[in-house]
Amino acid sequence: MLQYLVILLDDTSTSYCHYGVNKKERKLISLDHLRQGIRLGMVENLMIQFVYPDYNLPQEYLDVIDTIDHSNIKPMAALDNDTDIVTIDGWSYDASKLKDAVVALLTSWKQLNENHGKLKDLLAVVQRLNVVITDVERMSDSDREQYKVVLETLCKDVEALYVDGKSPQLNLLTDRMMLSAMNNCNAGDTTVTLAPNGKLYICPAFYYENEDDCVGDVVNGLDIKNKQLYRLDYAPICRKCDAWQCRRCIWINRKTTLEVNTPSHEQCVAAHLDRNASRDLMLSLRSKGTFLPDKEEIKEITYLDPFEIATQWK
């Protein structure tokens, strides 16, 4: 069931996920479309998330935005007290400005490998850190071996923070421990996106990839064909999977396997390396005392890609 509406306020609104923003010219959503989007949110009981560009919006836009409960996703350059999630593209940031912030850090795999040592300090400051590897689908087997090493290091950093009495949240490592069921992006199922052109998309990535790939518009409403395929129970690999923290990116799915309900090998393996590192972290923390007593232990498994055992499910 639809629960969230993402509204891109401008063509240059920040990315907060795997996609890149390939539009360079500012183009604000029209006030009419903005109002219609908000109206859609109200009549459908949707939580609205506004995604901002790196410049200040005209006051009239801010006034309209304020007519509904919402959350704000802003780039570092537009960070203010009204920001719910701040996005950082790369590794240039002033950590002192990020105290208690919820941060989405967008990085290539190469950059993460080179800079992951900086994350311990950032984790000590922020409320939550989402690390988004923007080229996860291009990671090779050897990259993934190295990623395992990076996760081991991060495990030690997070563990040390816990031992210090802090409660760091790092999506790659702590989400799986906290979850009891799948918690994915759910674009097309619980979330859709309104783009500056007044059309609706499965998620921002679909808009930036092809403007014609819309699923309705703000005037005539949503029309998602084969809507069921965005649901977990229509994803043969994912519905049996227990990498519950996996982003399960619908856009990467379609790009790599041509189907929105089927993840690539690369996405599955990365998610399972995170899962397994979470398991190690959880076991280690439990060896030091009571930790998340209401959560079950993450089971040891022999595969990194559930596709390998998919034939056994049939």
Binding site: I237, T256, E259, N261, T262, P263, S264, H265, A310, T311
Partner: peptide, 15 residues
């Protein structure tokens, strides 16, 4: 490209 084969190899009747 084995990723392109994954949807075919996981297809089942009910889905």
């Amino acid at each position: 490209d084995k990723n392109k084969l994954r949807p075919f190899l996981t297809l089942d009747r009910t889905t």
